[in-house]
Design a protein around this nucleic acid. Structure first.
Lengths: 144, 144
DNA sequence: CCGGATCCGTTTCGATACTG
DNA sequence: CAGTATCGAAACGGATCCGG
């Protein structure tokens, strides 16, 4: 199915919300980054409950945006494996800021204390380590 | 009108998308942070085009979330002035990460080169300066 | 005029059921 | 397991109206 393209007007200090201006995309990315999830079924159970059709749509959208990859698992023939592209991995600092803000201001959302403490005291190092781990996990195939 | 409350389940590495999981909220906040906008009418024209009812809803939502304030302009009696709370100002680093990522990966969104360069080379200082400016502008009344 | 509120057609979302 | 199909509910967006 063809994807609907919404054109946004330009703006001096600009950013793209095409991939983040919804309730689910960042949660899916977070599951990949911080929980190592990579299967459709894992996203269904790991995060909050997202409907299957919505998940399918977000995955397709993220793939179109060049943030994730989608391919067949070479081992188990039936499974589909989703992975992060470089562009997706580069979202780590953004995710960390989001976690940090939520940790500071949203009493409901509780990332582990230890994580939050390291985040506040040594953000850049935490980002580098997270990214390094991700790259190791996905080192297999060439990303665009 | 009562606000609809969606309860999200908890998650190990968590963040709240209640205020950001939509197309407009972050744009409004950006207009306040980087363009000094504070009037209803300014948000209508300054950003991309948002419908008046949607804008009203987002402003109310952001106020409920403690991110912005809403009060009468003491000078011009009729006008309403919107301002950022501390919690709102604390979103600056997140906004900067979003701008940085978009600058790196989204060819369409073009923040000024100079801004992007400083962002990449000296992010923390840029954040501090931005926040300081904001506080000066809003120093008038006590925030929460 | 400014800051919305209301109405209404259209689009998108989301829960469930179903399929290869 | 990895998604479609369906369909009602909600959100959006445009236009218009309204109180101060």
């Amino acid at each position: 199915m063809a994807r609907k393209q919404k054109r946004r007007s330009r703006c001096p200090i600009a950013f793209s919300l095409d991939c983040f201006g919804d309730r689910w995309s960042l949660l899916v990315i977070r599951d990949m980054v911080f929980k190592g999830k990579c299967y459709f079924g894992e996203f269904l159970t790991a995060g909050e409950d997202i409907a299957t059709n919505v998940l399918a749509d977000r995955l397709e959208r993220l793939e179109d945006a060049g943030i994730i990859t989608r391919r067949r698992d070479p081992e188990k023939g039936t499974k589909i494996v989703y992975g992060l592209t470089d562009r997706g991995i580069d979202l780590v600092p953004l995710l960390l800021e989001l976690i940090a803000w939520s940790g500071r201001h949203d009493p409901g959302t509780a990332a582990p204390r230890k994580f939050l403490r390291e985040l506040e005291s040594n953000r850049d190092e935490l980002a580098r380590r997270t990214i390094r781990n991700l790259r190791e996990r996905q080192a297999a195939e060439p990303q665009r």
